[in-house]
Amino acid sequence: MSASSTAPRHDPAYNFAFLDEQTKRMIRRAILKAIAIPGYQVPFASREMPMPYGWGTGGVQVTAAILGPDDRLKVIDQGADDTTNAVSIREFFRRTAGVETTERTDKATIIQTRHRIPEMALRDDQVLVYQVPIPEPLRFLEPRETETRTMHALKEYGLMHVKLYEDIAMHGHIATTYAYPVKVAGRYITDPSPTPKFDNPKMNRMPALQLFGAGREKRIYAIPPYTDVVSLDFEDHPFTVQKWDQPCDLCGAEDTFLDEMLTDDQGGRLFICSDSDHCNRRQTAGHHGSMTQDAAE
């Protein structure tokens, strides 16, 4: 057995991908149990990472444990490749693992994400790694870990439906717009991390393996490929995703998640795709929005 590249391309002051081998083995064992029990949060001995909690320490540890020298890594933060969190994590792995990085969704073998799923459909040879702040979907309803663990064990999820019902009673509709709870493979209620509910349908039967890492809360969970992921709802209040009454101002897309950007203090604003790679590629392919149309004319 031999690796394709033995000459280190990474900073030799670090072990490959930063973590020591014993830590990687511990995380790898947790990942295997997480895959075998879809949606169940496996406790793991999360390490201190050279970045603060909340910056994706869980996702970084999962990525470090699975990453190999032949992988091509993409990191996104709220859909964008060029924001601080994404840039610093990409640089972290370029330095400690020497891996190739990319902004192209279709070229990546591992995509680490904070709070979005790429617009482009993922393939079965890709792995999506989520950074998760609070892995326990029941945590804001029941603060005690002993109780939420028992609720998962007994599949006692009535409280979550009460919460969604109270949304309807107060607002007339289910007002949860991100971290919208899902049921994985008909068993565990799972937090999809703070992705907008717009992305929930993409999780259902996704061909790519989805891994979730919560560093501060020390949990890893997974959704295997082609697994049923159902967003919770009621018969008379079915799950729906956000819609915008205008297309992207840069690429004209009508089916993507849009961010609102303020452009001045006179009320000027733009709505643009949050997935920067998707938006750029559409523009390169000749699609225009209202902003780029003006520039072209």
Binding site: A3, E21, I66, G68
Partner: peptide
């Protein structure tokens, strides 16, 4: 050990 165990783990995963 570093690269071979990673390759083996990815096959197991």
């Amino acid at each position: 050990p570093v690269f071979d165990s990673q390759q083996c783990f990815r096959a197991i995963m």
